[in-house]
Design a protein around this nucleic acid. Structure first.
Lengths: 255, 255
DNA sequence: ATTATCTATAGATCTATAGATAATGC
DNA sequence: ATTATCTATAGATCTATAGATAATGC
């Protein structure tokens, strides 16, 4: 079995089935030799955020992934499918956490809200490219992106659910629950807009904790330091948990 | 002189110089007969937000404005110029208010911050189309849009300036001023994201007041009701003021 | 003469499909 | 035989410019 032979160089590209790629000029500095599918997604991720979705040609994506334009279509049926895939990858982790947190009745709603905001904001702030900006593409309103929109809707509902279970101080705060949930959601996703100025946020961990604190202020939390401590623990629990799992359970496809 | 003759119908379009437009099929329900320049901007505003910037052809814009594709170029030198114009129109009023408010030393920093957030959020929430979403277009990073970016930067700086002059309660809040300013700015511009779901926000006035309240909570305000009352008065002053002016002083072009 | 439109078009794209081809795997 | 690429291309755009034309204004 030749494939089992020990590779002499760690970096030596594995021999692959199929016609080899043509020499493509300088490699472009992209990932060394990931799966073609991932190379394409990485290329699209960069180009969509830097140049825009419509302004990015399939030719440019393919070039950056080290192949010819038409070869991309072996891996994805359309340009839309690329965008779909990127969008869903972006919300999935936060949504997974949200659904886990909703079930963790031992922790206070405030702590869970803090943790959700923290994880969500950190994901938005820390991603290599500002993929969250793609949420605003008008194209996303099309039918093809309904699954993504549904996922994002469920995430927003989770915020509302947790927010509704908090126990705000005094007259704090006025306005309907739905409206407050929008403010909270807006504060978190405001990270996307903050990134427009100074490329990646300096320190995503600190920044996202600041966002989570802000969320509890909007919620009228009475004991922020306590909720924050509990929330941090939840984040840690979750991270520990997901490291044991095979590779994070694929998000359950239930509506 | 036939032009001086009293028009029999108020709606009768004024006779204009230049070759008349060709019959264009159903009018599309657009504005009755505004200036061509404004018709074009209105068309672009709708199409850019609904279909996306690159995805909108100059042909589609012209059609909606009731003229042929090439005629648009008599009024604007390029598609980019259209976008520039829309973007600048969107920030200009908030920026004008911000610079006025910065100079109003009689009012507390909190009240001025509340008022700024209120006016800015109301503008974002109340505009017919979600023009704020255009801020995230990658194209906006290009040199051609530097004036817009500079205006938006000055607006953000105004938030920071006012925030820095507030007098927060207790340890409230941690984090550097720049970071808190970003949170505040993010909360306000989160309106843009909220609009993705349910087209125009139900009630922009109430909603934007809620945003402004949220800003003061983030700022750690100690007497929100008082600041809100003062802030409301500032808004009213400003609106009264600008109604007396010829048509709002054009935003001073100083950097 | 001036203005605001029109028609026509150059030149440059762009997405997706068809069908050929160069590897590996059995 | 299967896989993953390649080349070539159909068919449909799209932006901006050139130059003609139909009004008004003087």
């Amino acid at each position: 079995m030749p494939t089992a032979a020990k590779e002499s160089q760690a970096d030596r590209p594995k021999r692959r089935v199929g016609r080899p790629r043509a020499a493509q000029g300088p490699d472009g500095g992209a990932a060394p030799a990931a799966e073609p599918r991932d190379q394409i997604l990485a290329a699209a991720s960069e180009l969509f955020t830097v140049q825009g979705y419509t302004a990015t040609s399939t030719r440019a994506i393919a070039a950056r992934a080290g192949m010819r334009q038409a070869s991309m279509y072996y891996h994805f049926p359309s340009k839309e499918a690329l965008l779909s895939s990127l969008l869903e990858t972006t919300v999935a982790p936060s949504l997974e956490f949200a659904e886990w947190a909703l079930a963790e009745r031992d922790a206070s709603a405030e702590a869970r809200l803090w943790a959700l905001a923290r994880i969500d904001a950190a994901q938005l702030a820390g991603a290599e490219h500002n993929l969250g900006a793609l949420y605003l593409l008008p194209e996303v309103q099309q039918e093809a992106f309904a699954p993504f929109r549904q996922m994002r809707g469920r995430l927003r509902d989770s915020y509302r659910e947790l927010l509704g279970r908090t126990d705000p101080a005094r007259d704090y705060p006025p306005g309907g629950l739905a409206e407050r949930a929008h403010l909270v959601f807006g504060l978190v996703e405001g990270v996307i807009l903050a990134r427009l100025e100074h490329a990646p946020v300096a320190d995503p961990a600190t920044y996202s904790a600041g966002v989570a604190d802000g969320v509890l202020r909007l919620a009228g939390s009475r004991d922020l330091p306590f909720a924050r401590r509990q929330g941090l623990r939840l984040c840690a629990d979750w991270i520990g948990r997901s490291e044991h799992l095979p590779s994070s359970t694929t998000p359950k496809d239930r509506a």
